[in-house]
Amino acid sequence: MENKHLPYMLLLPATIFLCVFFIYPFTLVAWEAFSKDGAFTMEHFQTMTSNWKFEISFWNTLLLAAAVVPIQLALSLLMATMVSKMQKGRDIVLYIWTIPLGISDLAAGIIWLAIFDQSGYLNSMLYGLGVIDQPENFLSYQNKSTIFIAIVLAEIWRATAIMLVILVAGIGLIPKEYYEAAEVFGASNWKRFTKITLPMLKPSLQTALVLRVILAFEVFAVVAALGGTNFPVLMGETYNWQFELQDGNVAAAYALVILAISIVFTLVILRVLRVPKGAQV
């Protein structure tokens, strides 16, 4: 009797927690997005899509993710491989590389603002070296591409380490014997990376990419600090509608769009990086 119920009893706290703090608010938000005066409507979605900023912020968000995530993937793979090959001091290097993770994203945005600002470090340095005659406003609305580059740099600096730590753990789990076998059977360093490391790292790559891509769609504070209103993104618009325009319904619609994109990309990543049945380690 007791044995039969025990698993459910153990699951209960987490289930209650998820229902109260996730399912319930999610239902409220969904209802808010789809209802007006207690009736179903698509009106808020129409308001959202008819606003000129929706399309821009949608493509900006995707573009940013498309620029940041591949670079971060390549960088974190490179860094993880390097760390895994280190004999001494690997922990120290790992700690240093993960420092940006401990900084809030708004603070990270402000750090990079201090670099790219009109009176920032970059301008001071270029002026001091005589490269420019007067300070340049890199982040003005005329310089959309430099804003984009600044945001990409800040995001890479801030959030590559989250993938790095997952991949370092994943690489550590691959038995050394597979590399030795590959080496004996003729695989060069690069082949060992593509034929052994990458395929055996799939589960970790899945986790790292899903986590990173979802976070990329929620990008907000770094963009707000560096781009302000010159580079609208979905999360920034959500904030705008909720707090500036005081329209919670449209904000809820935005939130659902972000959720939908996240789900779609998660499914794509899980599908692409799936491990065939039987090939699990």
Binding site: P175, E177, Y178, E180, A181, A182, V184, F185, I196, P199, M200, K202, V275, A279, Q280, V281
Partner: peptide
């Protein structure tokens, strides 16, 4: 050379 390893090292993903 070719080698046979103690734990076989048969690649699980292939």
């Amino acid at each position: 050379i070719a080698m046979v390893f103690q734990n076989y090292a048969v690649f699980p993903h292939l």
